[in-house]
Design a protein around this nucleic acid. Sequence first.
DNA 1: TGAACTGGTGAGCGACCGTTAACCGAACGG
DNA 2: CCGTTCGGTTAACGGTCGCTCACCAGTTCA
Lengths: 204, 204
Amino acid sequence: MTATTDARAGASPGLATARDRAKAERRAALLRAAAQLFAERGFPRVSLDELGAAAGVSGPAVYKHFASKQAVLAAILVGASEGLLEGGRAVVAGATSDAAALAGLVAFHVDFALANADIIRVQDHDLDSLAGDDRHTVRTLQREYVELWVDVLARLRPADARVALRTRAHACFGLINSTPHSSRGGARAARSILESMALAALAA
Amino acid sequence: MTATTDARAGASPGLATARDRAKAERRAALLRAAAQLFAERGFPRVSLDELGAAAGVSGPAVYKHFASKQAVLAAILVGASEGLLEGGRAVVAGATSDAAALAGLVAFHVDFALANADIIRVQDHDLDSLAGDDRHTVRTLQREYVELWVDVLARLRPADARVALRTRAHACFGLINSTPHSSRGGARAARSILESMALAALAA
DNA sequence: TGAACTGGTGAGCGACCGTTAACCGAACGG
DNA sequence: CCGTTCGGTTAACGGTCGCTCACCAGTTCA
């Protein structure tokens, strides 16, 4: 898939050998296939044989890349949560006003949801299938992301209680995250519709 | 749970004998327990033994009330979809204007989501676990419900394309259906917040 | 009262699935 | 160039789970 040739393998250090590069590629393919399969059928209804097959290998080869089936799910969800939190923080840090920060958060989240519909689906589908530390990690990252939104909202609406603003933030996520359910391929104008709806809902 | 005593069993005809009444009660208890368990852990991760145990019976007794595990899920989802569609139609039929119809739909859906958080969770969690006719039935009912909303929206915004209005309706459902994720017991003011957000989003 | 019915139980079957084990061949590194 | 590493394979184990079977006890009803 990647158009990068071979020589030097400049990109990231630590991936000197061809084996390392092949392994990283396999791992990425597994994560991609897993996100799609989990989104389509749900985590518990995807077997490791199917998962491996979808990535070109078969069966227990997955254990050469992940410690368990749950670890695959954890990698997807933790990665997504971290990306969301990181991106959200960058948006807020670069905004010149609270209103601009909110608009930026909305635009960022809409872009993420449209570009990663599979991951969104997995996130509010199979988070319960995660147990132990991974679950806690994801929940913590998500809570921090919510608080990021609530902080901005609190500055814009100082009269509202934080618990009410949290409800507003969750409702806004639900609105934006509805794309995987509606846009079964179509609706290219979804971005602007969702952005305007989200901003109007938050301002109501 | 029901405070009704016994004699006569007036309510619905066809439930003359005590056994019939007991059976109906068991069935209802099973559906209640199933909705809660499926909402908490997801359909595939609830065993029939657990399901039975949660309703006071144990194990394969479920098969005296439902043909299969899927049939339990189907009963929950079909019932919910029918109730939603029926209620929505009643709201629209009784409204004196398109704007009132939309406001009524929003209020109705918010009430439903707040009163049946478990079922909402199951609906956008385990619908994929349904197969065959049941799945098709639920999808058809849901599509009709969406079209009910889109019809009202189309009258209020004749300039918009139906596909765009469908995106709006889905986004609105996502917003309202966010309650099960956010209100983990608290947020009693959620009703008015969600209603105003939904209406603002739809009008944007 | 006694035969038929029926909802419940416990044991058990068959399939599936996550995971481990034993082993193989190519790439790696001194 | 040779010993090691490592990603891959197939085979198999252990456990779970949906579902069926044989059977039992309390209702129902003629």
